[in-house]
Design a protein around this nucleic acid. Structure first.
Lengths: 334, 334
DNA sequence: AGTTGACGTGCAACCGGTTGCACAGCATAG
DNA sequence: CTATGCTGTGCAACCGGTTGCACGTCAACT
């Protein structure tokens, strides 16, 4: 057959096989219209026979186009991200790009490092829910085209999931059910989404005359939710809105462990619809649109790469409340 | 302060500035011992002054060392994989490698494509739970160092999570609880893990004199589990062992929707411990060790890259049963 | 003093593609 | 029948590094 000797088939081997110059092989792939139909066919046939695959690295060297983009997320294991990652990957694939995935472990410094390491080998970067400072983000954006998800830094293109609308609906929903005293369980302090959600719940509570208090779960995780339960109950509230679904699930399990029945005695609302109907009882939450966000971020990045001009574009995706089974009428007394 | 976007500083500029040959600049970075202390310093100073950063891509082209590895999984969104991905990434980082992540969507053909696309820009590949045929895997292994997770192809290094031991324990556990008729809900037919688990449950059932039947959920997902419930109940069994936790969770929710109480009326066992204590009731399952597998696979790959010799190494990780709350005594009658 | 060899450096070929330019062949226009 | 213009192809330089080999220098050893 073909394709032995330490790795891949090169353009030269294909050229020899097809009896043409190397440049023609190259053109058969990059500008087939420049060649006669016949020649292109012959070259493709030879390539096929030998199992030729163009070498991205070599191409990148001469064109400056790497054909790679990077996606950096704070935590792959957080169910909010995998669907986004997948969508981004599919979208990148459509433009024939490969994706580097980086995981910052919710650590700004690690994020900074990853950005540095990647920027030498990709054409552009999508930074999802960054924990990094605005200044550092802006600095990196100078070196490489950058698109943000859920972060608003001036002059940098971004996709924002506006959970504010959904959170407002959630607050209203709780008020309608008779809750007068609620808790917002906040996420990472450097998270734009957290700030936004916090602000939205505060504003809506004021408007509706609800008593609102805060409990902090600095990292969005099941355990953080679990550990926040005592603090939540101490506030004397009858309902909680959590930063995200994962935290909410921790709260759910923590409440159950303390014998507090949901939704009879206590209502819980999540955010991001990352768990779907998987919890028991199934979680009332705010839709997330993370799939669209991933897709959009990549296509935005592709646009930026095409047009060179760094457009200061923003896409805002609105959200809404999804009512399932963890919210119900406020209990009579507490 | 040179070095803006396009016109990055090259080795030639540094060479000129320092008054040496390009090769010396190169050596100042790769083999400083070959040069006199003085020359190295002069070069480094010039580089610093111009803001030189070595070009990763160019280096890769001439050395064949890309500094990248790829990790391909069937489904990022399946909770079994993210911890593994993270562990792999951390381990790769230790050797200063970047990770490309590929998602095959459980599709052998997509997997084949990804392998082809990546192999041009990485030094080695870790293929987790592949759905591809042995032949294709072997073919790719010829082109690039390859390490498998949960797949046994002769002559290719691999990390296997032996869920057989855990599954055997699970079967015994059910038998001890008085179950006489159980179901194994199988996963993807091309999955090595599935074959292994299926074989283990069959063997243990025979030994213990249990009646065993099979229901197939071709893709391991929540929905597939949900949809398998009718078939499971039709078998007249009192307990089910599912291919994985995600499927088990679907089964759990499906049973609950049909008013079947777990574990009072029906027992369920998952596999992979991907969900931890997150389900309600919390799932009895088989430990997975996916984190170790990810880490091990990368370090194995690094060894292979170092030693060139393609060692036919296998690591086998044993598993055991984790008893939580979805298994209990078999009901009196059914 | 003449050899030897280690050391430091430069030359030039390569890695696998891309691309500006030259040129041959042929059809059409003058 | 010669000018003109296209079309299709090849040549060779280039992208930014790495590396085998050759060469010059100088100290140490016969």
């Amino acid at each position: 057959m073909a394709a032995e000797r330490r790795g891949a088939v090169t353009i030269s081997q294909v050229a020899k096989e097809a009896g043409v110059a190397r440049s023609s092989v190259s053109r058969a792939y990059t500008r087939p219209a420049m060649l006669s139909r016949e020649t292109v066919e012959r070259i493709k046939a030879a390539a096929e026979k030998l199992g030729y695959v163009p070498n991205h690295t070599a191409r990148a060297l001469s064109t400056g186009r790497y054909g790679n983009v990077a996606l950096i997320v704070p935590d792959v294991a957080n169910p909010f991200f995998p669907p986004m990652i997948r969508a981004a990957q599919v979208e990148a694939d459509r433009s024939d790009f490969c994706v580097f995935l980086g995981n910052s472990d919710e650590d700004p410094e690690k994020e900074d490092q990853l950005l540095g390491r990647f920027s030498g080998q990709v054409e552009g970067i999508v930074l999802a829910s960054p924990r990094l400072s605005d200044e550092r983000i802006a600095a990196h954006a100078l070196l490489r085209p950058l698109v943000l998800i859920n972060r608003d830094v001036k002059g940098i293109p971004k996709v924002l999931i506006d959970s504010g609308t959904g959170i407002a609906e959630a607050t209203k929903h709780l008020a309608d059910l008779g809750h007068r005293n609620i808790v917002y369980v906040s996420g990472p302090s450097t998270s734009w989404s957290n700030k936004q959600r916090r602000a939205a719940v505060r504003k809506a509570s004021q408007k509706l005359g609800l008593e609102l208090s805060f409990v902090s779960a600095s990292v969005p995780s099941f355990d953080a939710g679990l550990q926040a339960v005592d603090a939540i109950l101490a506030k004397g509230a009858t309902a909680a809105i959590a930063f995200d679904d994962v935290t909410a699930q921790g709260i759910l399990v923590g409440l159950s462990a303390r014998g507090v029945s949901v939704p009879r005695e206590f209502s819980v609302v999540g955010c991001d619809d990352a768990l779907g109907p998987l919890t028991v009882p199934s979680l009332t939450t705010v839709s997330s649109r993370s799939i669209e966000a991933g897709k959009l971020a990549i296509s935005l990045l592709m646009e930026v790469l095409q047009s060179q001009a760094v457009r200061d574009a923003s896409y805002v995706l609105e959200t809404h409340l999804i009512i399932r089974s963890t919210t119900d009428k406020a209990p009579r007394s507490r």
